[in-house]
Lab assay of single mutants.
Amino acid sequence: HNLTITQGKLFFHYNPKLCLSEIHKMEEVSGTKGRQERNDIALKTNGDQASCENELLKFSYIRTSFDKILLRWEPYWPPDFRDLLGFMLFYKEAPYQNVTEFDGQDACGSNSWTVVDIDPPLRSNDPKSQNHPGWLMRGLKPWTQYAIFVKTLVTFSDERRTYGAKSDIIYVQTDATNPSVPLDPISVSNSSSQIILKWKPPSDPNGNITHYLVFWERQAEDSELFELDYCLKGLKLPSRTWSPPFESEDSQKHNQSEYEDSAGECCSCPKTDSQILKELEESSFRKTFEDYLHNVVFVPRKTSSGTGAEDPRPSRKRRSLGDVGNVTVAVPTVAAFPNTSSTSVPTSPEEHRPFEKVVNKESLVISGLRHFTGYRIELQACNQDTPEERCSVAAYVSARTMPEAKADDIVGPVTHEIFENNVVHLMWQEPKEPNGLIVLYEVSYRRYGDEELHLCVSRKHFALERGCRLRGLSPGNYSVRIRATSLAGNGSWTEPTYFYVTDYLDVPSNIA
């Protein structure tokens, strides 16, 4: 807008934040220059609390790290170098490059900038070799853009010569660093050979998330399962459950009422301010606690030095998902009996873990797994792929695949051998790939016309006998059925096997 004052003059007093240069501009645009008398524009009460600059400061050096910015700028000295009290560095987070010096300023003089007072450097006698002032900004957020400017702080001049310097606002972004852990990993099994893994992005990506790394490792069953005799009275049979499938998407929606109208769909109840505040506090606490764990609990591995020492970490090797089922080394339970199943799973520490690289999504279907087997899954978020990966501390989750139908069934015939004193040795093959492992066998036998009897055969007993022995049988026709019990439950009964026990007292003698 054009402003013209045809008559009258300007009068400025007691404006401590208004620089004289701005008042002189007002004289020019209003056409009143030359009308004012000496005392109409006070030299001592206008701009006496402001830094009124008329020179431009330029930054000469900028260096960044993930949490620091090192700045240096060209030296500046007023005509009387004693008038320079120091520099004021202003900075704040700036997602967009549209910041002005006066953003967030209120009537009390406060604003949204963080201000650092910096002492002037030592003055050199040689004007050509003056030290460049600077400042190291610490405690910054990774991968965050900051708006920065600097200006001088000078003393009051009796001659009211307006001098000083100020830089333009520059924008500097800190470097990326390792992201925080992925949030809320959930693993479920939808079949006997697959596990579905879902997660949420890290709360602090500290860069642009480029991919996720998912490692999985087959877990050995508890050692007590191999040692305890679950045929003993009072000892509860062990059981394991597989990871249940995901709930429906509708039930997972946030901010939804727990109660549904019987007449149909209901609208979600909005969260109160107290609920939102509580969630923010919980989120802040979780982030602080995660940072504490990362800094205190997890110790970084030592990389190899120039002395030739090897990095103890196993090298990563990509495998196809079809090879995942046989990740671990199978060892027989008892070496003397080769027909026992290889369900003991000690994992070799030198073995390469299978892994998958996930790009542009937060889910993965891990296939080719062994049925009813526990897996430990390790999830890392990465925001750099080359020249070397920059990934987060791992988040861990466990899951067990679903049982395989008929995996616990005894394959092959049940054979028998009759000894003296009416002892019958029953023999059968253990299931080759049971659900988890076989903890015991149930032997059901009966003599024709009598009630059915049951015998429990422990895992250890089966390994020693290759089956079991029935003792003290009365003469007669017998039928026997056997079924295995694994961590997933009972298998199917075998087809009945028949044998006849004679009275050993009636056996004919070869003595003449």
Score class of each variant (00 low, 15 high):
441 Y>P: 00
482 I>M: 02
228 L>P: 06
361 K>C: 09
306 G>A: 06
355 F>V: 12
290 E>M: 11
385 D>S: 02
368 G>M: 09
379 L>G: 00
252 Q>E: 14
273 D>I: 14
215 F>N: 10
438 I>D: 01
448 Y>R: 14
373 T>R: 04
290 E>Q: 14
420 E>A: 06
215 F>K: 08
455 L>I: 08
391 C>A: 02
492 S>E: 11
359 V>Y: 11
239 S>K: 15
327 V>P: 10
497 T>G: 10
241 T>R: 10
253 K>S: 10
472 G>E: 09
490 N>Y: 15
266 C>R: 09
307 T>K: 13
383 N>S: 04
449 G>S: 10
444 S>D: 06
456 C>Y: 02
203 S>P: 03
294 H>R: 10
246 F>T: 11
505 L>P: 12
416 H>F: 06
387 P>D: 08
314 P>V: 04
355 F>H: 12
277 L>I: 11
465 E>Y: 12
311 D>K: 15
252 Q>W: 11
436 G>L: 10
331 V>W: 14
284 S>D: 14
490 N>V: 06
446 R>W: 04
250 D>W: 08
448 Y>K: 14
357 K>E: 12
363 S>P: 06
483 R>K: 12
264 G>R: 12
206 N>L: 09
355 F>G: 09
308 G>S: 10
211 H>E: 02
237 L>F: 06
495 E>A: 08
355 F>Y: 09
490 N>S: 14
256 Q>N: 05
420 E>Y: 13
310 E>I: 05
461 H>V: 10
455 L>E: 15
466 R>H: 12
278 K>T: 15
269 C>H: 06
226 F>C: 09
286 R>K: 14
290 E>D: 11
343 T>A: 15
315 S>H: 10
509 S>L: 10
489 G>E: 01
383 N>T: 08
238 P>C: 10
381 A>E: 02
370 R>V: 11
393 V>R: 15
225 L>N: 05
208 N>P: 10
434 P>M: 04
276 I>A: 10
441 Y>V: 03
226 F>E: 11
263 A>E: 10
367 S>Y: 07
204 D>Q: 03
354 P>E: 11
250 D>V: 07
295 N>Y: 14
232 L>Q: 10
504 Y>D: 13
505 L>E: 08
463 A>N: 14
363 S>E: 11
366 I>R: 02
414 V>Y: 01
205 P>A: 08
407 A>F: 10
360 N>P: 09
256 Q>T: 08
211 H>M: 04
343 T>V: 07
286 R>H: 06
483 R>G: 01
239 S>L: 13
249 E>M: 04
298 F>T: 10
417 E>P: 03
369 L>G: 02
331 V>K: 06
494 T>Q: 02
342 S>C: 03
501 V>C: 12
388 E>Y: 14
400 R>T: 05
245 P>S: 12
345 V>S: 11
304 S>M: 15
237 L>N: 06
208 N>T: 07
440 L>E: 04
397 V>H: 15
229 D>C: 05
204 D>M: 01
307 T>Q: 07
262 S>K: 05
295 N>D: 08
209 I>A: 07
276 I>T: 10
254 H>T: 12
403 P>F: 07
431 P>G: 04
263 A>Y: 15
384 Q>V: 08
307 T>W: 09
226 F>L: 09
285 F>T: 04
447 R>G: 03
480 V>P: 01
403 P>S: 07
319 R>K: 13
454 H>E: 09
235 L>P: 06
291 D>L: 10
354 P>I: 13
492 S>L: 13
392 S>P: 04
332 P>S: 13
473 L>G: 01
288 T>Y: 15
486 S>W: 00
339 N>T: 08
348 S>N: 14
397 V>I: 01
418 I>K: 06
480 V>N: 02
263 A>M: 11
424 V>M: 05
347 T>A: 12
286 R>D: 14
257 S>F: 14
340 T>R: 07
414 V>C: 03
305 S>Y: 07
341 S>W: 13
394 A>E: 07
490 N>G: 15
282 E>G: 14
310 E>H: 11
318 R>H: 12
493 W>S: 03
351 E>D: 11
373 T>G: 06
471 R>L: 08
353 R>P: 14
340 T>V: 05
273 D>P: 15
251 S>H: 15
414 V>T: 03
391 C>V: 02
505 L>A: 10
390 R>S: 09
213 L>H: 07
393 V>M: 11
259 Y>K: 13
387 P>S: 07
311 D>L: 14
315 S>V: 10
244 P>R: 11
300 P>W: 06
226 F>Y: 10
497 T>A: 08
274 S>T: 09
260 E>K: 01
313 R>F: 12
498 Y>Q: 07
349 P>D: 15
474 S>L: 08
371 H>A: 12
249 E>T: 10
394 A>F: 09
356 E>N: 13
214 V>K: 00
431 P>V: 05
371 H>P: 09
292 Y>T: 07
354 P>M: 13
441 Y>M: 01
276 I>D: 10
357 K>S: 14
297 V>F: 13
461 H>M: 12
